[in-house]
Amino acid sequence: MERVQGELRRLAAGYLRHERGGRTLQPTAVVNEAYIRLLPQRGVSWENRAHFFGIAAKMMRRVLVDHARRKRAVKRDAGPVEPVSISGVPSPAREADAVDVLALHTALSELARLDNRQAEIVEMRFFAGLTVEEIAEVLEISPATVKREWATAKMWLRRQMQGL
């Protein structure tokens, strides 16, 4: 996995470097690209796939949090900076959509204490960009369960992050 980690870091760094102004960063693309490069096409057992995605999600979280920390440390007094989107959709700027990665990271660590699996689902969904169906496959649970966990996790995280 050293190789995977290296790959993910390199890829993410590549995407992030090109990230200026309106261009979008797609974690899904980052992870998928790493995955495609690292996995020869023939038979991959689900167990390995699950393990891979679990690790990939963790890696992406770390990559993003590291960047956010470094950035925060460096640019505490930074002026207005152009918004950065990490979704595949170059959505029109809606301030309400802005997510503070560090705040999410902290809230997610809290959620993990209450419900570890739910936190893992958020990790895979948000940081690795897996679909509900993919997460269901990886964790060997039903898509309905993933959907439910994801929706309620969003409620918990939003409330936690806004201190409501």
């Binding site: 992030l16 470097r17 990230e19 200026r20 960063l25 993003l64 960047h67 956010a68 470094r70 950035k71 925060r72 460096v74 640019k75 930074a78 207005p80 900076v81 152009e82 918004p83 950065v84 989107s85 990490i86 979704s87 959709v89 959505s91 700027a93 809606r94 959509d97 802005a98 997510v99 503070d100 990665v101 560090l102 999410l104 958020v122 969904r125 948000f126 969003k154 995280l157 939003r158």
Partner: peptide, 13 residues
């Protein structure tokens, strides 16, 4: 968390 946007400027370096 669906159309994700990060806090401005946290991701470029």
């Amino acid at each position: 968390l669906e159309t994700v946007r990060t806090v401005p400027g946290t991701l470029n370096s």
